[in-house]
Amino acid sequence: MPVRLKDLPRKRYGMPGNAACPGCPETMGLRYVKMALGDDVVLVIPAGCSSVIQGIAPKSGINFPILNIVFAAGAAAAAGMKAAFEALGRGDVKVVVWAGDGGTGDIGFQALSGAAERNDDILYICVDNEAYMNTGIQRSSLTPPGAWTTTTWTGKREPKKNVPLIMIAHDVPYVATASVGYPQDFIEKLRTAAKIRGFKYIHLHAPCPIGWRFDPGLTPKIAQLAVQTGLWPLYEYNQGKFRVSPFSRMYRRPEKRVPVIEYLKLQGRFRAALKNPELVKMIEAEVERMWRWIDALEKSLNPAEEARRITGT
């Protein structure tokens, strides 16, 4: 069901005085999570910017119950919490992990994979700002090629680890990509996931003005450009069916895509890369690589839709 802005709750979930930088995508995302899921939710947050954003005890700038946990243990702690709620007859409580790209694709990956394989009934959200921001912008395996970080001064040379695809390969009930630039799409996916039992994974693209070197007023625009260039396609894998989400469908056609350069030139982290045609080529190749995977998944996981697409019916 499409999400209409006027139906969303008015309650304030991100409180004034939280410790986020201006234009922070993580506070935006956290707000959407609560707007979508309501009050029957407990959050588990491993180390990362969101550990800090909450502000300083005894106060909290985020208006919901949170269990903070060591960096590598988000999925495991959440699995335990969910088991406890079930054992105590409160199986309706939703346990949500909110972890960074490092907490997801690097140090927390083992726990994530374990929980996915066990099909633990939790919702895992990776808030992907494409580097270790909390420790001062170091590369993660999810940093895109070409990006400057404080551990890749001349631009990262390796591709971005494709965690959502790896999660699909775990055969869990639900995997989706989302973006802070498309809150309605994200909220809809959160609500869809919340209704499913078992392991759910949403990968939220979250441009960070501090780490990516852009004007804090541009967070949603940069997020939208990632989708419009085709670099970050929005899609959903729901109980074995794969589909590209409405906001991304038109970018299946290369001629509709915004040139990648438009995305890169707004971000200081690509300044060096832009002077290196080879790196730019590598980034452009990422778009092709992404969509090749999507085509393959669509064809194999959703033959009916694929047939309709080909025949134009």
């Binding site: 243990a73 495991a76 919490m81 088991a83 406890a84 709620f85 079930e86 726990a111």
Partner: peptide
Amino acid sequence: AKMIRVESEHSALAAVYGAASAGARA
């Protein structure tokens, strides 16, 4: 009881810690 067959000890203790935080004897 719920038995979580975790993939490591780091996760084992994190899981029972999560469970205990939610009110269960673990």
